[in-house]
Computed example of a mutant assay.
Amino acid sequence: MALGTLDRSLPPFFNQGPSVFSKLIFFGALSLFLMVADARFNVTQPIRAAIATALYPVQWLALQPVHAVRSSSSYFTDLGQAQSESAQAREKLALQSLRAGQVELLMQENNRLRKLLDLKEQLAMPVIAAEVVYDAPDPYTRKVIIDKGQAQHVALGSPVLDESGVLGQVTRVHPLVSEVTLVVDRDLAIPVLNVRTGARSVAYGDPTVGGSGMELRFMGSNADVQEGDLLTTSGVDGVYPAGLPVARVSRIEHRAESAFSKIYCVPQALTTGARHVIVVQPVTADLALPPSSILPAVPARRGYAK
């Protein structure tokens, strides 16, 4: 078929019906009518509700990825914030715990210092306040080092007290520090007095290595000693003032093979953690001097000198 013979007219399907302009007028008027009717009488509200109900599952499915992204982002943000707050809370808790420990330590130290001041007022003799620097390095002895020495007029043999009782005795004096042998040392002995009965005896340090107690020796099996008896210094040695608390009887063992009882005592002083102490001048100052300085020098006889 030649090109000139082609029919260029529109098909009959598109030539039927109203024109485009008529459709525009009709649908415009219908739109205005529906808008006015909806504004006045809400005629389209049921239709909207039905359409919204029908489309809700589609909307819910379409919004799930958005909710998932938001939830994951919120989860990680909240997790990071929670971890940060937890770390800050732990840091504050550690700081508060440290401060609470320091406050409790300061309160204990304050109470001990108050007791030391009260004990200092009760003693009618000069005393020197000192502080324990460190323990002696020898593991077979129970000794500590205090920060007072010859420069502060610390005398050899001076009793050392804490707020609870007799802690020990100065056994070596250096220019700036002094060595104190504790009452629980096996080489130290203290004359004591039983407050309940008035009986005198001698308390020794625990003979076992690293011992932390005391032993009341040379007490007969029939001696009147009970658990809980308080032992104080008797003052007969001329070194320790009388009436200072030393130890308390903790256990008594009666042995059939011996005429003496084995009596264990617990020291009243804090032998394992004392920090602030006072050094008391010996009752008899001559007893704190070496024997060579106490005995008078004997002049040499003429004729016998060589």
Rank of each mutant, 00 (worst) to 15 (best):
F41M: 04
G235I: 08
A297Q: 10
E163G: 02
V20A: 15
G213W: 05
E121F: 11
S158I: 09
M219I: 13
R251M: 13
N111V: 12
Q268V: 04
G303H: 04
T284C: 05
A39R: 11
S74P: 00
R172W: 07
L188D: 03
S31M: 13
S72M: 10
A242L: 08
R301M: 08
A37W: 11
D237P: 07
F33K: 06
K115I: 04
L30R: 02
S19D: 13
D187H: 08
S250M: 07
R255T: 08
R251H: 13
G168W: 00
A37K: 07
R40G: 04
G235K: 09
P11Y: 15
V184I: 15
S9A: 04
V170A: 01
Y134G: 01
K306E: 11
H276T: 05
P11T: 13
N42I: 06
L287E: 10
V184K: 06
P299A: 14
A136P: 00
Y134V: 09
A82R: 02
V266Y: 00
E179L: 03
P65Q: 08
N222W: 06
M214P: 01
A269G: 08
L167T: 02
G205K: 00
A29Q: 04
V236M: 10
I252G: 01
T232N: 04
L182M: 05
L287C: 06
R186S: 07
A247P: 01
L61T: 06
R251P: 06
G238E: 08
K262S: 08
Y304T: 12
R248P: 02
H67L: 10
Q88E: 12
M219T: 15
V127N: 03
E227Y: 01
S293H: 05
T197I: 07
Q59R: 02
L113W: 06
V154L: 02
L270K: 13
L10M: 08
P245E: 11
D135V: 10
V58G: 12
R217H: 14
P290H: 09
Q226K: 14
A54D: 13
G149N: 03
E109V: 02
L119W: 00
I47T: 11
V202C: 00
I47L: 15
L32G: 07
A54R: 10
L295S: 12
T197K: 09
A259R: 14
T232P: 00
L34S: 06
L244Q: 02
L30T: 11
D187L: 03
A29C: 11
T232H: 02
G228A: 13
R8V: 10
D229W: 03
Q169L: 07
S22H: 14
V225R: 07
A199E: 14
G243Y: 08
P296G: 12
K23Y: 06
A129S: 15
N222D: 12
P18A: 07
L34N: 03
S258K: 10
V225T: 15
L61K: 12
E215Y: 04
L98S: 15
L231A: 04
P18S: 04
Q268M: 09
A52K: 01
F21P: 01
V36Q: 15
F41L: 08
G80R: 12
L289Y: 01
F21H: 14
K306M: 07
A288H: 05
G28P: 06
D7Y: 05
T141I: 07
R99F: 15
D229V: 12
S292R: 12
E227D: 09
L93Y: 06
T181N: 03
V103P: 00
P299W: 11
I25T: 13
